[in-house]
Simulated scan of single mutants.
Amino acid sequence: MARVVHDMAAGRTPISLLSVARVRATGASGYLAALLMEAGVVPTENFDRIRLEVWEEEYFGTLPNPTHRSLLKQYAAWIVNPRFTDAGHLSTKDESLRHRGSKAHLIAVSELLSTLDSLNLDLGTVPQRTFDNYVATHGRTGKQLTPFIRWARVRGLTRLHSEYQQSHLGTSSASDDERWAWAKDLLTAEDLGLNARIGGLLSLIYGTALTRVVSLRRDAVKLDGDSTYLSLGTEPIKLPEVLGSLVRRLLDTAPASLHDNNIWLFKGQRAGRHLTTAAIRGPLAPRGINLRSARNVALMILARDLPPSVLADLLGISIYAAERWSTHSGHDWADYPRVRITTEPR
């Protein structure tokens, strides 16, 4: 990146995110892109989208069939690339994961088209049974072809049917006692950084996904005397005193930003970006803490104790997810609206 910056300063390379994206992708290239945007040198754009478009240009150029190239370019432009809507250094999502997933998806679509080509078939002539066999023999990759097939069907390019894989909540291998033992460990684990401790506790206690945890903003925390409130959804949650004290310590020790717009509670190393999920999950793994299993337990217990509408407001999850967890917990809240209405004062 030092060479890239030198070439930009000397006028040999345009000062743009595209110039950085054309260099081999590394942590340094992502940092430079975020730094240029944070400093106001270039307009704020989603760097992962630009990187993906550069990769698409190179990859599509290697495809021998011009029809396939044209079809994939249209699909990428209309469906895949617009998913990167947030500005890169102000994103609330882990765009790097989406970037890798998008590349894998486009490669899977390309492989499907190549296979059909080798069978002297195309999207308009392939029998449904042949496509189903292809999906069945390609495992997870085959099942992820649904967005492309549905897009092609809307455009009248195929009559194939493809269904999204049903989402399963699954069962947890952790017990509630293990979950609280892990929480107790993190409350006193001074050998761990505050980011890992607080992020892990929020996931253990409230079942919050790490992607949501790391994207919390500083203004989600409200201080009221000795009480600390955190907004995961539309309704703030009063944190237990010991957890609230950790959050206050995090606010006091957060590193300074290049400017005065340090908006993230869990600030990352890259300019203007929040912490990655790996930075929280990594230190907890050696201690045997399974956040995914514990999160399932937390959500199941919370869904058993709280109606779906209340759960959705507190945790910031969709009402559909809250209802699914409620069903999974075995608790029926069908009479909750009636009970709530009848208990209100006249």
Rank of each mutant, 00 (worst) to 15 (best):
T62E: 11
S91E: 06
L194R: 15
K184F: 10
K238P: 06
L90Q: 13
R49C: 15
I205A: 08
T277V: 15
L121I: 05
I263Q: 15
L169H: 15
H68R: 05
V80L: 01
L90M: 11
P64S: 12
L36M: 13
Y164D: 07
L216E: 01
E95Y: 14
E241L: 11
A196D: 07
R159V: 00
Q74A: 15
E45F: 03
A322E: 02
S167T: 12
P66N: 09
R338P: 03
A77W: 07
L302K: 02
G170E: 00
A220P: 12
H168L: 11
E45A: 13
G27P: 09
G101C: 03
H6M: 08
L202V: 08
F60Y: 11
R69T: 04
E57C: 04
R304N: 04
P43H: 05
S118H: 11
D117P: 04
L18G: 10
W264L: 06
L18E: 03
I198N: 15
L106H: 00
Q269P: 01
E190K: 09
P236N: 02
A77Q: 09
H138R: 04
R281Q: 14
S96H: 09
N296I: 11
L314C: 05
G170D: 12
R197A: 05
P345Y: 02
R338T: 14
V54E: 02
L299R: 14
F131A: 03
H89V: 02
L63M: 10
T146S: 10
P14C: 06
R150C: 05
K143M: 10
G233Y: 00
L112W: 05
K238W: 08
Y229G: 09
S70M: 01
L157P: 01
G101N: 12
L72V: 13
D332I: 05
R281E: 14
Y59R: 02
A136K: 11
T141C: 05
L250W: 08
F131S: 02
T44V: 12
S245I: 12
E235H: 10
T208W: 09
S318A: 13
F148H: 06
E56A: 11
W151G: 10
L90V: 04
L246E: 14
L246A: 10
S227L: 11
R346S: 06
T188K: 09
Y134Q: 03
I205E: 14
L275F: 04
S326E: 11
S231A: 12
K103H: 01
F131V: 02
Q269M: 00
W182G: 07
T44I: 10
L202K: 09
A312N: 06
R292G: 13
L116I: 00
V42L: 07
R24Q: 06
D252G: 08
G244T: 14
D117C: 07
A21N: 00
S329W: 04
A21E: 08
D122M: 00
S227Y: 14
T211D: 09
D185G: 05
R217T: 03
R179S: 07
T13Y: 02
L36T: 09
T208P: 06
L187P: 08
